[in-house]
Simulated assay, not measured.
Amino acid sequence: MPSPTPSKRPAPIHPGWMRANHWLNALAVLVLVASGWRIYNAAPFFPFEFPKALTLGGWLGGALQWHFAAMWLLAANGLVYLVLNILSGRLAAKFFPLTLRGILADAKAALRGALAHTDPRHYNSVQRAAYLFVMLDTVVLVLSGLVLWKSVQFGLLRDLLGGYEFARRIHFVAMAGLVGFVAVHLVMVALVPRTLLAMLSGRAGREAPAAQTAKELA
């Protein structure tokens, strides 16, 4: 009697390059936020400052050095993420199609606690919208950051963003949007810890049903 053929191990939920990219982005964002808050405190334009214990750099010059280093990491890593997602077809497979009706329906289901998370390979409409938002938000963050870094050299970009001071506010709002995304993301990870396992090892303990399409497994 022939021995049974061993079943082929399913493809990882997240490819290795994507997991590495995710954790490098997490490091870059952490450094950017902490150092950015210290830079903001040096010349605040709102009637509040961030607690010094939550900032990085110790002084303005040190905070700027940390901020610029993390800026290049975020920009380079983000570019790699975007290019690999497009070339692999993952961008189209994971984040589209996306409709306003789908976002509203999934948002209502989430508020009722009825949104399923049985297959971490599949993003619901709210997740797709959130990830696309953070991609665009990061682009705005980098572009406004270039104006703050080299205002004279990026004069055209500075003018398109409404001038140096307005670019500062755009940068602050974009960073606030990124912090908000991270906060919601951490809450969702706490509610569905299998997503953290998938991002650490590529698997989530219990594999998704075998009927997944090749597009979903990409």
Rank of each mutant, 00 (worst) to 15 (best):
L157H: 09
V182A: 12
A176I: 12
Q212W: 06
M175K: 07
G155M: 04
V187A: 12
H171T: 01
R194D: 14
I170C: 00
M199H: 07
G177K: 04
Y164N: 05
R206N: 07
H185R: 05
Y164W: 14
R168S: 07
V184Q: 07
Q153N: 07
G177M: 05
V182G: 03
R158A: 13
L156F: 15
V182W: 09
A204R: 01
A204K: 02
F166A: 06
F166H: 08
V187K: 12
Y164R: 13
S151R: 09
F154G: 00
F154T: 02
D159Y: 10
G163H: 01
G162A: 06
G162I: 05
G202A: 08
L196P: 03
S201D: 06
D159W: 13
T195W: 13
R194G: 09
F172I: 04
H185S: 04
G162S: 06
T195N: 11
E165K: 07
A208D: 13
L186M: 13
D159G: 05
L178W: 01
A167V: 00
A176M: 14
G177T: 05
R168M: 12
V152P: 02
F172M: 05
V179N: 04
E165Q: 11
I170M: 00
A183T: 10
R203V: 01
T195K: 12
V152H: 10
H171G: 00
L191W: 11
A190V: 11
T195Q: 14
H185W: 08
A198N: 04
